[in-house]
Write a protein that binds this DNA or RNA. Structure first.
Length: 355
DNA sequence: GTAGGGTTAG
């Protein structure tokens, strides 16, 4: 089953799972973690519910996997339920489960709860330190992130490339340019970590957001390995839009369109850039060019948790969830599942939606 | 057999 999941054959794994007459915890666990690796988080939670209904006792691995699903769905209430179960099962001394719990709270926006878990961890390893730093950094609490990083070094835990990613992204969110550059250099010179594209991504964003666009561009030019990276160019392009640098912006847009002619986002950003400097003719040209090529904006889709249930909605919903949108989203979800299975959620629209 | 941390942009 695990092998099928790893090959992306979710349907085959499901078939085998159904054939197992007496399912033990391991079989359920493989399904839950398999769904998570396949990005099918609704299903992961669904099969966890089935497991509970089947009265199979969940273990640390079950909880760890289902917490990953809760994190991805930002389903805080469901995550809290899992927390209760972990306490009931007296699994609070497990390093990995607690790490997953900490991450779940952080991803669901409950940063202080995440720190509550971090504080009581029996042992703090590289992963838990990094999770907590990421949690603070991604919620704009940079100084707490940097303080924690200092504490981590004090405790003699050596940061790795993920830790630095957390630090760099924290600095970039807060506009701490000098600090960010300092850590970038420390990473290389003190910790011997060779920066990857993702590190450069933070660095380019950091420097670009600060308006030092040419400096950011030079970094790309100086490193042949990353000069043409579409992701990095897009990051810099956004910074050009932010600072209304038409020259560099247009140059980068041209490269991006050459490399990725089907991607509508370049056109959209370009048109926004022209609009921000009142160049309406240029804006219209970009829009009509986009239309001519048949490029459309990707529809936005998200979901929210109301009264223990998860509701999807589309970007055109401004004030509240509409019946049609929910229906559309069910269609969207089902059409995006190769196996045509129906999402586990029950859409109790009449009773819940306007509550 | 199955388990926790990952950037940027639209």
């Amino acid at each position: 089953m695990d092998l099928y999941f790893k090959c992306g054959k979710v349907g085959s794994a499901e078939t085998i799972f159904k054939l197992i007459p007496k399912k033990e915890a391991v079989s359920w666990n493989v399904m839950i973690s398999g769904y998570v690796t396949a990005g099918k988080f609704f299903e992961a939670y669904g099969i966890f519910s089935d497991m509970r209904e089947a009265h199979v006792e969940a273990d640390a691995i079950t909880f760890t996997s289902v917490l990953a699903a809760c994190s991805q769905l930002a389903a805080l209430e469901k995550g809290k339920d899992v927390h209760k179960l972990i306490i009931e099962r007296k699994l609070e001394d497990g390093e990995v489960v607690m790490g997953a719990l900490l991450d779940m709270y952080a991803k669901c926006g409950a940063v202080d709860e995440a720190f509550g878990i971090f504080r009581i961890l029996p042992e703090r390893d590289l992963v838990s330190w990094t999770s907590m730093i990421t949690a603070y950094g991604s919620h704009g609490r940079v100084h707490e992130a940097l303080k924690l990083f200092a504490d981590m070094l004090q405790s003699n835990v050596k940061p790795d490339r993920v830790t630095f990613l957390a630090i760099l992204s924290a600095c970039s969110h807060a506009g701490l340019v000098d600090e960010g550059c300092y850590y970038f250099n420390e990473m290389i010179n003190v910790y011997g970590i060779i920066p990857r594209v993702e590190h450069y991504s933070c660095l380019i964003d950091l420097i670009g957001r600060a308006g030092r666009l040419n400096e950011a561009y030079e970094i790309l030019q100086r490193n042949p390995a990353i000069t043409d990276d579409v992701g990095l160019l897009s990051t810099l392009f956004s910074a050009c839009r932010l600072h209304r640098n038409l020259d560099l912006g247009f140059r980068i847009a041209r490269t991006l369109i050459e490399k990725n002619p089907d991607d509508s986002s370049t056109y959209i950003t370009l048109s926004h850039m022209y609009a921000s400097v009142q160049k309406w003719d240029e804006m219209r040209t970009v829009r009509s060019q986009m239309k001519k090529l048949g490029l459309k904006k990707n529809p936005g889709c998200s979901w929210t948790e109301i009264n223990q249930k998860i509701y999807p909605f589309f970007s055109e919903d401004n004030s509240r969830l509409h019946l049609e949108s929910v229906n559309k989203c069910i269609l969207y979800l089902t059409s995006h599942m190769e196996d045509e299975s129906i999402p586990f959620m029950h859409f109790d629209i009449e009773a819940q939606i306007y509550s």
